[in-house]
C-alpha cells in the first residue's frame, strides 16, 4: 500500500545550500526535530504540518511558496 501521493514538493535542500551550507543537523536543531525528520521531508517522505512548514520558511526568511510548491496534477 503506497502512501497517499502528495503534490507538494520542496526546495529545502537547495535553500540550505544557498544559505551557506546549512546542514540537515543544523536545520533540525532550529526546528526542534530530529535529523531523520528533515531527511524525510526533503525526500518527500513526510509532509510537515502547516505550522512546521511556516517555521521552515521562517528559518530561511522567505515566503512559504519559495520553500514549498503545490504542483499540477490530476484533480482529486
Amino acid at each position: 500500500m503506497t502512501p497517499k501521493p502528495t503534490r507538494v514538493t520542496n526546495r529545502i535542500r537547495a535553500l540550505r545550500t544557498e544559505r551557506g551550507d546549512l546542514t540537515q543537523a543544523d536545520l533540525a536543531e532550529q526546528l526542534g526535530v530530529t535529523r531523520q525528520t528533515v531527511i524525510a521531508i526533503e525526500q518527500g517522505k513526510y509532509s510537515p504540518s502547516l505550522e512546521m512548514a511556516f517555521q521552515i520558511a521562517r528559518v530561511f526568511d522567505v515566503p512559504l511558496d519559495d520553500v514549498f510548491h503545490y504542483g499540477e496534477g490530476d484533480a482529486n
Binding site: 533540525a28 530530529t34 531523520q36 504540518s49
Partner: peptide, 8 residues
C-alpha cells in the same frame, strides 16, 4: 539527538 522523539 538522533534517537529523540519529535513531532513527526
Amino acid at each position: 539527538s538522533e534517537l529523540a522523539s519529535d513531532s513527526r
